[in-house]
């Protein structure tokens, strides 16, 4: 992997707006953002309804993923470009899920919706009609997904990277500050996890920092990227952003996203938890 094969610029997207092999998908946390306007030709993916199982807490099954991509009119050999609000958090989550089910060519629009808007580029409200396909997914790539038992076993052994804000890591906040704070799980972080907020990997306009800056960010925080790494946040979307940085931009092989994240871990009975600004002991 390299930056060029996983990230595209806004200029690149403008040059490929009429390319039939490029499918633009907008993924937002605020699922009404697309309805107001979007990049011409882009199709809406509703994070809440389209990328998760409707009943259980889980991502889509292979069959559900196939049905989604068929409905969106995506073929396995299409280049899928994902973008969205919140600095591409949910677009990165979708990217990770697309990779989990083996879609070959997926890319993120660098800077997402915010950079596009700050550049004053064209947004439209026409909703395109795409012809459905018969999409066949691959078997899940479990090398990029961590489950809770592996996370508990990683304490003091593998790299754990908590990408939430310092206040969430320390336990002073329970959710990102644009959301109400009343939730059920306990505050804190997984002992030994380093706190490297996802935002340190991005510029103010939402674009990713340079490869050199990114490498320095993790090495300065004492993360040995030769060791296995598990990234987590609250629900797995911001950690997808960091997973994207490490595995897709920097090409670090052994990086997993723990999509159960703090909403699962902080609700488990009997597991160790650290509070405060220090990582804590195994």
């Amino acid at each position: 992997m390299s930056r060029e094969s996983v990230l595209v610029s806004a200029d690149w997207v403008e040059q490929h707006l009429d390319d039939p092999k490029v499918v633009l998908l907008e993924v937002d946390e605020d699922t009404t953002a697309y309805d107001k306007n979007h990049i011409r030709g882009a199709v809406k993916v509703n994070w809440n309804e389209d990328l998760r199982d409707p009943v259980r807490r889980d991502i889509l099954t292979k069959e559900q993923f196939e049905s989604l991509l068929s409905r969106l009119g995506v073929s396995p050999d299409d280049t899928v470009v994902l973008y969205g609000g919140n600095n591409n958090w949910f677009a990165a989550y979708a990217y990770w899920e697309f990779k989990y089910y083996g879609h070959e060519d997926v890319r993120l629009l660098d800077g997402g919706r915010k950079k596009w808007e700050l550049d004053n580029r064209e947004l439209v409200d026409d909703v395109p009609e795409r012809t459905p396909t018969q999409y066949t997914a691959k078997e899940p790539d479990t090398s990029i997904r961590a489950f809770r038992d592996e996370v508990v076993g990683a304490i003091g052994d593998k790299n754990l990277v908590d990408v939430r804000s310092p206040d969430e890591y320390a336990g002073r906040l329970l959710a990102p500050a644009h959301l109400p704070q009343e939730v059920s799980q306990v505050p804190g972080h997984i002992p030994t996890a380093a706190n490297i907020p996802w935002s340190k990997a991005a510029n103010d306009d939402g674009t990713f920092r340079s490869d050199d800056e990114l490498r320095e960010l993790y090495s300065e925080a004492g993360v040995d990227l030769n060791n296995d790494t598990i990234a987590y946040c609250r629900i797995g979307e911001r950690s997808s952003h960091t997973w994207f940085v490490l595995r897709e931009i920097l090409g670090v092989p052994n990086v997993k996203n723990y999509d159960g994240s703090w909403t699962e871990y902080g609700s488990l009975v009997g597991v160790p938890v650290a509070v405060g600004d220090e990582p804590g002991r195994a």
Partner: peptide, 24 residues
């Protein structure tokens, strides 16, 4: 941004220019 300048959250303003955070 928190007291050390670290990013904590971000929202776009609404149609009426409004924003809101739930902080500490």
């Amino acid at each position: 941004l928190d007291s050390s300048g670290e990013f904590t959250a971000e929202v776009p303003t609404s149609a009426t220019g409004q924003f809101r955070f739930f902080a500490a």
